[in-house]
Amino acid sequence: MKRFLPLIILALLAILPLIGLSTYMMHIVILVIMWSVIGMAWNLLGGYCGQVSFGHAAYFGAGAYTAGILYFKLGLSPWWGLPLTIIVVTVVSLFIGFLCLRLRGPFFALATLAMGEVFRVTSENLVDFTGGDLGILIQERTWVEKIWYYYIILFIAAGTFFLIKKVIESKLGYYFVAIREDQDAAESLGINTTLYKTIALCLSGILTGFAGAFYTNYMGYIDPKVVFALHDISIVTIMVVMVGGVATYWGPVIGAIIMVFLAEIIRSIPWLGVAHHTFFGILLIVIIIFLSNGIAGDFPKIKRLFRIRGTS
């Protein structure tokens, strides 16, 4: 049963649009899936390999701009951005990895944060290449109906999920966890930590880049402040994973549901008004105080809590 759970959920998701959701709901669901892709990608690097990145917006934005510039400069369909992202983001990841991976802990976190900002400001200033602050507007989007976008992002998400599962269950995954638990010990056992960290970073970056390229196609408008945003992309990514559950397969998905779907519900409560931010902030604080490994990570704890309630 448990082995087939991902397939069952995938099948359920595949028939979801057939029951006739409104486009509003479809939009939210698409965003949830997109954020789970980013979350899963981050989780590979941060959760399993222990390298907490504060700059995933760099990869997201690189992916988004790959697609955008193809359209803007060459007049090609931005969908070509998806395959091309692999090359572009690999280069970006190797560059960032080369600079930042020699650092550890909070230093790595802060260095990646800075890299994300460097990318934003650079793309703002390279006006001829990126359109600068005017951004890139793609007028003819491929489809009006959401259903195609839905299947594409679902396909990407499913691919990401199984890829990460495969990686984590392979030797590579054990190396990653070893690096997370104790880098020095891992190194003394003969693991080439720099190599494996770079692999994790590249994989994570490419998967995030896919989400970015998809974003360009789906939203039809990007500008540096949106796709390279520190708070709205990089930090939200971290929250998606940490709220959902670090180093779990389903954590990012649950996190994305909370960060997008629940946030939207809370935002829509009429009597809360502007205060929805406070409400959501308090919710995050409560989650992290009581479930410090996230919802999926501390699932046994929740189960226990409910059982005690149930018996008494």
């Binding site: 409104s22 486009t23 509003y24 939009h27 939210i28 965003l31 939203m219 408008y221 949106v226 709205d232 939207e264 935002r267 829509s268 008004g273 502007v274 929805h276």
Partner: peptide
């Protein structure tokens, strides 16, 4: 509240239309 974020503005627009 669109919070100045395009995704959320779009959510709102879809909601209003749909």
């Amino acid at each position: 509240d669109s919070q100045g974020k395009p995704e959320i503005s779009r959510s709102i627009a879809e909601k209003l239309i749909d």
